[in-house]
Design a protein around this nucleic acid. Sequence first.
DNA 1: TATTGTTATACTCTATAACTATA
DNA 2: TATAGTTATAGAGTATAACAATA
Lengths: 146, 146
Amino acid sequence: MQVHKIFLRRLSVLELSATEFSVLVLVGANPGVYLRQLGSALDVSPPNLVAVVDRLVQRGVLARLPSAEDRRLQELHLTDAGRHLLARAEAQVEMFETGLEQSLSAAERRCLDSALKKLAAFDPPRADPPGEPSGDPRDDPNQAGA
Amino acid sequence: MQVHKIFLRRLSVLELSATEFSVLVLVGANPGVYLRQLGSALDVSPPNLVAVVDRLVQRGVLARLPSAEDRRLQELHLTDAGRHLLARAEAQVEMFETGLEQSLSAAERRCLDSALKKLAAFDPPRADPPGEPSGDPRDDPNQAGA
DNA sequence: TATTGTTATACTCTATAACTATA
DNA sequence: TATAGTTATAGAGTATAACAATA
């Protein structure tokens, strides 16, 4: 979480949130993606993504182009300013990641990587004993005690 | 982040947020703490903590007792129901942590621990080149490009 | 004058229902 | 009817200013 905070601070230098940065990266790598595709890739619902795209469009870094085949769709593209901003952001992030990597040895990086992969794959053993979620009637709330 | 999500899901079984759980743990370990002390320990501002405490008091797990010496202060204590809920929550968390630990070998745990400690201590090299934050006038927003 | 708990307020994120225009 | 983008709205989480009571 500490590392994530520093990552966000780096992006904030360019007035970008993590979501906005992700949008730039994904649109840059997939010119013409549709809003819904972008949203499912980022796990952001369409209603919430509209505001993000709006802001980036008004900022002049993103453009909505109507699709020729299906007039419900709109292709998302980076503008020239968008490509420039993305390049600056990626430079910031790369610098950040390099700094991070250098604070660990090669062996530590390998070990961390493998440990985190295992933790990310962790599927918790279901352990809901037949006790009620919270409305436990035996929990009569009464006096305090020091 | 994935692990944190699972942690939150465990607590949600008892209808507890991470902050609420922290409050129960800290008040349980420090009976009589004041709201401001609690807030600075949790990095939650007093205005925001009031609502959290309100909810736990109304739920019957926390109690506000007026301080005898300074009538501006209020001691926070767990009720009997609060101690019971805390015990259940700690059991959930302990089960969760045990599951996590068992998905790694002892060597992996040691290595992960040391690597994360180093990353948490990471202090980013200041790298703000004399470029403007974002209002760069040379970023004239113009046409898109596929 | 300073401090504790509190109210009010605002701004971001997130989540859901419903609308429009297309298909 | 189904889908894409959109609007409106509500709920959390977070941040700041200001207030009453007390020191």
